[in-house]
Design a binder for these strands. Structure first.
Length: 270
DNA sequence: GCGAGATTAATAAACCGGTT
DNA sequence: AACCGGTTTATTAATCTCGC
């Protein structure tokens, strides 16, 4: 709709490039997105509306990202090569294969985020090697405890875990059928653990004891049955009386709801 | 082998970014 | 444009992996 997308003038292109470069210089290339860069650009330009030049700017951003990430990659490759050559000899492929390394460079940010897992044993070989190298570095750097680095909380933040349900199925079907007593993770850890529900929560769920996932499920059934989602922002749940008794507020964010649930679950003591 | 940190499992729906 | 998949929130227990 609307007007043909205008191209940026050379002056603008120049100006935008400088701004984008400065944004990229301080940003984490693994997590930065086009949108964020564009937002930063708009902010830098005093809130100027760039929608008319969206396409041209998108290309500009991509071009600058590619250019900068390639520079970074080369820098990393050099330091990597130096570091590794002292420990291990690796076929020095990087220097010569320009095309290959470039490809890796542009692809690296996203895949890097996606994987962070260790389910596949094939990838593990590499992962382990990397872990060992890193462990050595850590030990040299500090006497710090172990790979965790000491932060327990890191778990949640640092490792974006993959969606589980999806993996379960393929995993399940593949070859487990042959070997009945598959070693796979038993039933599902503590997820099935039942809790005593607080009174208001009991009134909502209709059960005195439920596991957390069941409580969530039950809550959503209630929400849908009573159309409690705010139409303008469906993540917001409007509390009816029963809900209010639990959450003590007229509206609750669906994620906060999960958080609040914890206050209404009591461990069952024998 | 033991200890400890890291990871994964289920549950829900919306939203966002990326891909086709 | 439409679709797909990841991310978000919280939780516990079991399991895995690695260091010592």
């Amino acid at each position: 709709m609307s007007e043909p997308l205008c191209a940026v003038t050379p002056e603008e292109s120049n100006e935008y490039t400088n701004i984008i470069d400065s944004i990229l210089a301080t940003a984490d290339l693994e997590t930065i997105s086009r949108k964020k860069i564009r937002e930063g650009l708009e902010a830098e330009l005093g809130g100027k509306d760039l929608s008319a030049q969206k396409t041209a700017i998108k290309e500009l951003i991509v071009a600058r990202f590619d250019a900068i990430s390639q520079v970074n990659l080369e820098a990393v490759a050099v330091s990597d090569a130096e570091a590794e050559s002292s420990n291990k000899k690796r076929p020095a492929t990087n220097g010569t294969s320009g095309a290959g390394s470039t490809d890796d460079a542009s692809a690296s940010p996203e895949p890097a985020r996606k994987k962070a897992k260790r389910s596949s044993s094939v990838e593990d070989a590499d992962a382990r090697l990397a872990a060992q190298l890193q462990a050595q570095e850590n030990r040299l750097a500090r006497g710090r405890s172990t790979r965790g680095g000491g932060d327990k909380k890191v778990t949640k933040k640092k490792a974006p875990r993959k969606k589980s349900a999806k993996k379960v199925n393929p995993d399940d079907d593949s070859d487990l059928e042959g070997s009945e007593a598959a070693p796979k993770r038993k039933g599902g850890g503590g997820f099935q653990k039942p809790f005593n529900l607080s009174e208001p929560l009991q009134a909502l769920c209709g059960e005195a004891q439920l596991s957390r996932p069941r409580v969530v499920k039950s809550l959503w059934e209630h929400i849908k049955a009573n159309e409690l989602q705010d139409p303008s922002d469906k993540r917001q749940i409007r509390c009816d009386e029963k809900m209010y008794a639990v959450f003590k507020q007229a509206r609750v964010d669906m994620f906060k709801m999960n958080k609040e649930i914890g206050n209404h679950l009591y461990p069952i003591e024998e």
